[in-house]
């Protein structure tokens, strides 16, 4: 289990690194994928429930620390995303259509949740005139990238999982 936690953590750090560097320049239609979210979903499919929640919270906290949003905002969003993943992962097993649809809905839902919470907490996120595009395009890009990223994460983390903290 420790190996999976370490691997998942490294994957998320790498995703954040790519998101803030490579996808700063590669931005078709002026938007980029939410890679950290995608990797988190992929890791959440194969990790034990409680470590997955902690990884989600930690990855969100990392985004909070690297951004100007209130500390805890991304942590909250990522925690919710992982919780949804671990609750529904059995139903979407290996079905590419459901997986793709799930990635799109979860990414869009997570970004919407962030925008709404950000506005509630004074960030004026919803005042962004391109808000719909900034939610839909990353979700679409994540859906496309999921075809390569999710199998890669499955290969790295393996498919075995149990509930709770069981080793």
């Amino acid at each position: 289990m420790t190996r999976r936690i370490v691997l998942a953590s490294l994957l998320i750090v790498a995703a954040v690194g790519l998101q803030t560097t490579l996808f700063a320049d590669l931005r078709p239609l002026d938007a980029a994928p939410a890679l950290a979210l995608l990797v988190l979903m992929g890791a959440g499919r194969h990790m034990l429930e409680r470590p997955a929640l902690l990884i989600g919270f930690g990855s969100g906290l990392l985004l909070d620390l690297l951004s100007e949003s209130p500390l805890g905002l991304w942590a909250l969003v990522h925690t919710v995303v992982v919780f949804v993943v671990i609750r529904f992962r059995e139903r979407s097993e290996d079905d590419p259509i459901i997986l793709g649809f799930g990635v799109f809905v979860l990414t869009a839902g997570a970004l919407t949740l962030f925008a709404v919470l950000g506005t509630i907490f004074g960030e004026k996120t919803l005042a962004d005139a391109g808000i719909v595009r900034k939610i839909v395009l990353p979700a679409a890009y994540n859906t496309v990238l999921a075809a390569a990223v999710l199998p890669g994460i499955t290969w790295m983390l393996g498919t075995r999982r149990r509930s709770g903290w069981d080793l």
Binding site: E49, R50, L53, L54, F57, G60, D64, P70, L71, G72, L73, A75, L76, T79, V80, F83, I86, F121, G122, S163, G164
Partner: peptide, 22 residues
């Protein structure tokens, strides 16, 4: 359900962090 309890705990912690940071 300990998973749900942890989830709720982390959500609560997030709100605390947001409040403190703001």
């Amino acid at each position: 359900d300990r998973t749900v309890a942890l989830f709720l705990g982390l959500v609560f912690l997030s709100f605390v962090l947001i409040t403190v940071d703001l």
